[in-house]
C-alpha cells in the first residue's frame, strides 16, 4: 500500500514536471516564432529593437500604452489603429493598417513577443 502510494506520487511528479517542461518548451518555440513574425510584419516601422521612429511610429519597447492596454495588441495587429494615441508622453497620429494574412495564433505569438521581450510582462497568452 505504501509502496503503491509512493509510486503514484512519483508518477504524478513526473507527469507534472514533464507538463511544465513541455509548456516551457512551447513558450520558447512561441517566442522564437513571435520574433520571426515580428521581424517580417512589424519591424519595418517599429524597428527590430522596438524603439519606433521619431514621432512617426510609436515605440513598443517599455511603452506605457502597452503596459496599460496589454490585451489591445491583438486587435491593433488585426484591425490596425487610427487616430491620435499617446505613448510615453508623445502623441502619434499616423494610421497603422491591419496586418493581413496572419492567423489568430500568429497574432498571439507576436503579441506575446512584444509583451515579454519588450515590456517584461508575464504573458498568459502563451499556451
Amino acid at each position: 500500500m505504501k509502496k503503491s502510494s509512493i509510486l503514484l506520487c512519483l508518477f504524478c511528479f513526473i507527469f507534472i514536471a514533464s507538463c511544465i517542461e513541455n509548456q516551457f518548451q512551447n513558450a520558447t518555440v512561441n517566442l522564437a516564432s513571435g520574433y520571426q513574425l515580428y521581424e517580417k510584419n512589424c519591424s519595418n516601422c517599429h524597428q527590430t529593437d522596438g524603439s519606433g521612429l521619431a514621432k512617426l511610429y510609436p515605440p513598443l519597447l517599455n511603452a506605457d500604452y502597452i503596459k496599460n492596454n496589454p490585451t489591445a495588441i491583438d486587435s491593433i495587429i488585426k484591425y490596425g489603429q487610427k487616430g491620435s494615441i499617446i505613448v510615453n508622453g508623445i502623441e502619434y497620429n499616423i494610421p497603422m493598417p491591419g496586418v493581413k494574412n496572419l492567423s489568430d495564433f500568429e497574432i498571439k505569438q507576436i503579441a506575446s513577443y512584444v509583451l515579454i521581450k519588450f515590456n517584461k510582462l508575464d504573458s498568459l497568452l502563451i499556451q
Partner: peptide, 8 residues
C-alpha cells in the same frame, strides 16, 4: 507616407 514596407 503610408508605405508599410521599406520606407520606414
Amino acid at each position: 507616407v503610408t508605405c508599410p514596407t521599406i520606407c520606414p
